[in-house]
Nucleic acid binder design. Structure first.
Length: 840
DNA sequence: AGCACGCCGACT
DNA sequence: GTCGGCGTGCTC
């Protein structure tokens, strides 16, 4: 192809460093042609990416003399004066990503809550005087035309030569419908792609497998990629590339079959939004990402009906309220507020938030889950109107369009109170004065996939970067928050009754533990006689009860009564959970399921014994103990409609912790924790703190009343339980826990990171883990700074054998120093999880 | 992530 | 020689 010499640019502008929402590091692009000036940090840009255009975020200046031949960014989407993300936030998040040794794209893909799906009208033409006929008949001419009329790959080739002029106009997001275009209205360009096509004659030099692959391709028709062909033909990629080099197949431009997602949309009719399309199609087994949906619209496979739609409505804020309470909260850079009930905490917080909003500053409130977010919205959003601004929510519950609309309200300073999930953390709040993290100890802040970010850590960095205060507010503080200055509200009235499975009170006639081994059955198991009696009282008085089971399903495992064999997952080293309703055994780690075997694999016994009651088991027991009392279930497997309970009807709901995401039933008189010990048996140093917080949250679940809290346990003396029984405040237990952590050198007296070394081969994993250990020591790590390596608690997980090392450093800087040692290649997959939670 | 490439061991 | 599995590197 012809090379075109561009006029010499002088001096060469500094490249821009940008991130795309993929697990790759930040990459450099040259600024768009003719654009000088400062680097637009925090603005979104369109960049060429794998032959198409992708939305990227500018995070800084690139390497001025990088070795790479850089491509040009194509278009800047946001005004430099009003960046999509505040530059200080960009800096804070990028620093956090660097410290955590994570590719910046992975982190931004998780943390940028809106804006990846930009919508624009894209027009192109040939640079005046350029002749693009070398690119084929369907190349742009000197006349402006919609980019849809050309194939993305062709446009990219022209763009790379510097022969394309492009014009972008933002199109307003519509509330209307996304509709599949009739096939004859789809631009011709969209219907052509480059594919691998079999030559009519197979070359004589093909190997047997090569011949098989050629025959498959000749019969099945062209394939989009080498891998797709290899997968389909059932051969390795080596074979198919062999066929190509032997001349048995070649890349050709052909009419493309309509994408599966287009077929889906044609069949299912118009949908509300791009994300509705993506979700619907994916749910039906047709993979489609929101970005993929956007790209199909851009290429002309579907239309987003353009109506001058008003911005999508956001939830109504609460009624305006004015507080006359004095502000008793600390003025420190970071402080805490715990105890009381959520309403009293919001009342205490209100004077501070009102004052800051009235000063024209911004306030961001983060919640870990839907339930907390809803309560915060109800409790705090009304403050905005009184202070002359607006409140907006940002969370996954909003559609893309609503989130983007809310984001723009924040960006334009129309809304200065933001209440949201972690997706709100990077919102462009000008001049934030306070970031409130609600329930800072919640595990829901730990992102389950991708970056594994722990949001309060990132929030602290963002607050610091903006010189804003960080407030940690919740039912009970994390041990990490204890050293901060703060306030503790008096605990709500709590009535606690402990059923002590280890020490049944009566039966003195047997003598002091005279060789009698009491089984839990003596007290009633899994529902104690006490709890059963209380449930019958609830029934007689027409009240309501909630029982918390430690797990979903029927039982933790099945065991053969003859040989003690327990069915295990075939991918993981754990027992399969028994689900009676579906008569299936399920792995709660990887989702593997099988039906219950008729007989024991080992000895042939035909009976199974269930151990470790779950929600199904508890629900059945309650039905037996209190016949006629309506029983509802609420866990990940089954979410019964709780409307009758919320309408005040009598009944009992059996669930897992998921229950706390719902409002408490209004007539709730009894809460039972059927086996508290499960929360303590986890091999995690935060287990008891989590247990304590669960009890506190149960105690304040009902907004006004204090239902009787019955705790069945083998550890009735556990201090996390005792502080509630004794009516002590929310700080008492975490403060004791914090002293224990000091003695052991755990957070907040150290910063932890878990290094996971995993491979399909257990020996390889073990050896690599040892190499990581040696490398850390070689780099000067002290003995107390590196623990392990040890096989993961679940020795085999999804088919790989993970080994764990725990790094324990005095502060972030030292941790970052230790992690720098890992920046090289290893003989196994090495992943870092900074501030890990659970499974330690 | 998704893709292509290349090394290596197994097998003929 | 042939084949496939698996690890590695790349996307600007």
């Amino acid at each position: 192809m012809r090379r075109v010499t561009l006029p010499p640019a002088s001096p060469p502008p500094a490249p821009w460093r940008v991130v795309v929402p993929l697990p790759v590091p930040a990459l450099d692009y040259v600024p768009p042609h003719g654009r000088g000036g400062a680097v637009p940090v925090g603005c979104r840009v369109l960049v060429p990416w794998r032959g198409e255009l992708a939305v990227a975020l500018v995070v800084g200046e690139g390497d001025p003399h990088g070795a790479h031949r850089l491509r040009e960014a194509v278009h800047v989407l946001d005004d430099e004066e009003e960046p999509w993300v505040p530059p200080a936030t960009v800096e804070a998040v990028c620093t956090w990503a660097r410290d955590a040794r994570l590719p910046a794209g992975l982190v931004w893909g998780d943390l940028l809550g809106a804006g990846w799906t930009a919508r624009y009208d894209h027009r192109v033409r040939a640079v005046p005087g350029a002749d693009l006929s070398a690119f084929g008949r369907r190349a742009p001419t000197g006349e402006w035309a919609s980019a849809r009329d050309f194939s993305p790959a062709l446009l990219d080739a022209v763009r790379e030569q510097g022969l394309l002029e492009e014009d972008f106009r933002p199109t307003s997001r519509t509330r209307g419908l996304v509709r599949a275009r009739p096939l004859d209205a789809v631009p011709a360009a969209a219907r052509t792609t480059t594919v691998l096509q079999a030559d009519p004659e197979a070359p004589g030099t093909l190997t047997p497998k090569g011949r098989q692959a050629w025959a498959w391709l000749a019969e099945q028709g062209p394939q989009p990629t080498l891998s797709a062909w290899a997968r389909g033909a059932g051969v390795g990629t080596g074979v198919v590339s062999g066929v190509v080099s032997a001349g048995g197949a070649e890349h050709v431009e052909v009419e493309a079959a309509p994408p599966a997602a287009w077929t889906w949309l044609s069949e299912h009719g118009p949908v509300e939004s791009l994300s509705a399309w993506a979700n619907g199609a994916t749910a039906d087994g047709v993979p489609l990402s929101p970005t993929g949906a956007g790209s199909l619209v851009a290429r002309g496979w579907a239309d987003a009906v353009q109506e001058a739609a008003p911005p999508p409505p956001l939830p109504e804020p609460g009624a305006p309220w004015l507080t006359h309470d004095p502000d008793r909260l600390p003025e420190a850079a970071a402080w805490r507020l715990h105890g009381g009930r959520s309403l009293s905490r919001f009342r205490t917080l209100a004077p501070r938030i009102s004052r800051l909003l009235a000063q024209g500053r911004g306030v961001l409130v983060l919640a870990p889950d839907h339930a907390t977010l809803r309560r915060a919205w109800e409790g705090l959003s009304g403050l905005a109107e009184t202070a002359g601004t607006r409140a907006v929510p940002i969370s996954g519950a909003l559609s893309d369009g609503q989130r983007e609309h809310a984001w723009n309200l924040i960006r334009s300073e129309e809304a200065r109170l933001v209440i949201g999930s972690y997706l709100a953390l990077t919102a462009s709040l000008p001049d934030p004065a306070l970031i409130v993290v609600l329930e800072e100890a919640s595990d829901a802040y730990k992102l389950a996939a991708g970056s594994h970010a722990f949001i309060p850590d990132v929030a602290a960095r963002v607050a610091q970067a903006h010189d804003a205060a960080l407030a940690l507010v919740g039912s009970a503080p994390a041990a990490e928050s204890v050293p901060l200055p703060g306030a503790v509200l008096p605990p709500p009235r709590a009535r606690v009754h402990v059923v002590d499975y280890a020490n049944p009170p009566e039966q003195p006639e047997l003598g002091p533990l005279s060789g009698v081994h009491l089984t839990p059955g003596d007290l009633g198991y899994p529902v104690s006689h006490d709890l059963a009696r209380l449930l019958r009282q609830v029934q007689e008085r027409g009240r309501q009860a909630a029982l918390l089971a430690p797990r979903r399903g029927y039982s933790a495992l099945l065991r053969c009564p003859t040989c003690e064999h327990t069915p295990q997952c075939r991918n993981c080293d754990v027992a399969l959970r028994f689900h009676q309703e579906t008569r299936q055994l399920t792995c709660h780690q990887c989702g593997y399921r099988e039906s219950v075997p008729d007989r024991c694999d080992v000895c042939g016994e035909q009976m199974w014994k269930a151990r470790g009651p779950g929600t199904e088991w508890i629900a059945q027991t309650v039905e037996k103990l209190a016949p006629g009392l309506p029983v509802y279930r609420y866990d990940r497997d089954r979410q019964d409609d709780l409307a009758p309970l919320h309408a005040g009807e009598s009944g009992v709901v059996v669930g897992t912790q998921l229950l706390l995401s719902q409002d408490a039933p209004p007539n709730l008189a009894l809460i039972g924790v059927t086996l508290a010990d499960t929360w303590l048996n986890l091999s995690d140093f935060r287990a008891s703190e989590r247990y304590h917080r669960l009890l506190r949250q149960l105690a304040e679940w009902h907004p006004e009343r204090a239902p009787l809290l019955v705790v069945q346990t083998f550890q009735a003396d556990h201090p996390a339980l005792k502080v509630l029984v004794e009516g002590r405040d929310a700080l008492a237990y975490p403060a004791a826990e914090e002293r224990v952590r000091a003695a052991l050198g755990y957070p907040p007296h150290a910063r932890l990171a878990q290094v996971e070394v995993a491979a399909r081969d257990p020996v390889r994993a073990k050896v690599a883990a040892q190499e990581v250990f040696d490398a850390l020591h070689g780099a000067g790590a002290h003995a107390h700074e590196v623990l392990g390596p040890a096989p993961s608690p679940v020795a085999r997980l999804r088919g790989v054998y993970p080994y764990h090392l725990l790094l324990r450093a005095r502060d972030d800087a030292r941790l970052s120093q230790l992690l720098a040692t890992l920046d090289r290649s290893w003989k196994a997959r090495v992943r870092v999880d900074v501030n890990p939670r659970g499974g330690l």
